[in-house]
Simulated assay, not measured.
Amino acid sequence: MHAPASPFKAIAWMIGSLLSFAAMAVSVRELTGEMHAFQMLFIRSGLGVLILLPILTRRTQHGSGWRQIRPTYLAGHGLRNVIHFTGQVLWIFGIALLPLATVMAIEFTSPLFAGALAVLFLGERMNRGRVAAFALGFLGILVIVRPGLADVGEGVILMLVCALFFGATGATTKWLTRRETALAITFYMVLMQAVLGAAASLFVWQPVLWEHAPWLALMAITGLSAHYCLTSALAAADATFIMPLDFLRLPVMALAGFLLYAEPFELWTLLGAAIIFSGNYFSLRYEHKRPRPEMPSATPPPGSGPLG
């Protein structure tokens, strides 16, 4: 394993990512009960389009930008965004029903689903790293949920299904990254999900009040900045260096839930998340040490799914 290229820069980007993810979750929680998830995602994606349009135009002047937006793989983008949109709706429902820390802990299972789907549909091979990750992931979920000892509510079930959809998003994203740029994938994401959100919002639309505006703006901006910062951190250092830092999202989210909403933080949640995360990290280290052709990893960093 080579040394991180720029650890201090990577840490700075990860701080930005952690704060963005926490702010995004808080903005969603503040809007919960005020408007439907469909409406949130429509407005968030519409604002995302407006943010990206000048970026694309400016980059076009320097030789890229709009030239990256091609219709060649529209079907792949469409499949990815239907899956991702569904996962985001479930994530918003989960935010309304569960403590923020529990949402984040269960979300750490999404890379495990991504790895399983990559084996099933992308022709990747099962190996010891993935077997260990799946086993530890299953054990971690049992620790968090504790079936028979605690009630398994609908929020937990929703978040497990959400993690499956985020895992499927990761697998389809890997397929697309072999063919498309990150900017193209992001642009089609906000564009297509704005259309999906607009169609779905027709049935649940509520008036948007001025007091909603700061939270909607925060959700749109942090939805982009969280993943931009995370991607920049991964560009500055190894994934094996970044991944332990990404786990800090759990205590950051727990602290936000405690300070803002007086949510209790259970030791079982931390323990289960640590077990899941250790499985993810073991799998990543195993993949990192294997000799293989250069290509994007099938296993995205944990929690890479929400709103981005």
Rank of each mutant, 00 (worst) to 15 (best):
A3F: 09
G16S: 12
S17K: 02
A25S: 14
S27W: 04
T32W: 13
T32M: 15
G33Q: 10
M35Q: 00
M35H: 02
L41M: 11
F42A: 12
I43K: 01
G46I: 08
G46E: 06
L47T: 09
G48I: 05
G48Q: 07
V49S: 03
L50M: 11
L50T: 10
L53F: 09
P54V: 06
T57A: 12
Q61S: 12
G63V: 13
S64C: 13
G65M: 08
W66A: 06
I69K: 11
I69S: 12
R70M: 04
H77G: 05
L79E: 13
Q88E: 09
A96G: 11
L97N: 03
L98Q: 03
L100E: 07
A101F: 10
M104I: 04
A105W: 01
I106F: 07
E107H: 02
F113R: 04
A114I: 05
A114K: 13
A116T: 11
A118Y: 05
A118C: 14
V119P: 02
F121S: 12
G123F: 09
M126Y: 13
R128I: 10
G129N: 01
A133R: 05
I144T: 06
E154N: 14
E154R: 12
V156D: 08
T172F: 10
K174M: 14
L176S: 15
E180F: 04
Y188V: 01
V190R: 00
A199K: 08
F203G: 11
V204L: 10
W215C: 00
L218H: 08
M219I: 15
I221H: 14
G223R: 01
A226D: 06
L230E: 00
T231I: 09
D238Y: 04
I242V: 14
I242C: 04
L255P: 03
L255G: 08
P264W: 14
G272E: 08
I276A: 06
F277H: 12
Y281H: 06
L284E: 07
Y286M: 02
E287Q: 10
K289L: 15
R292T: 11
P300C: 11
P300E: 02
P301Q: 05
G305S: 04
P306S: 06
P306M: 05
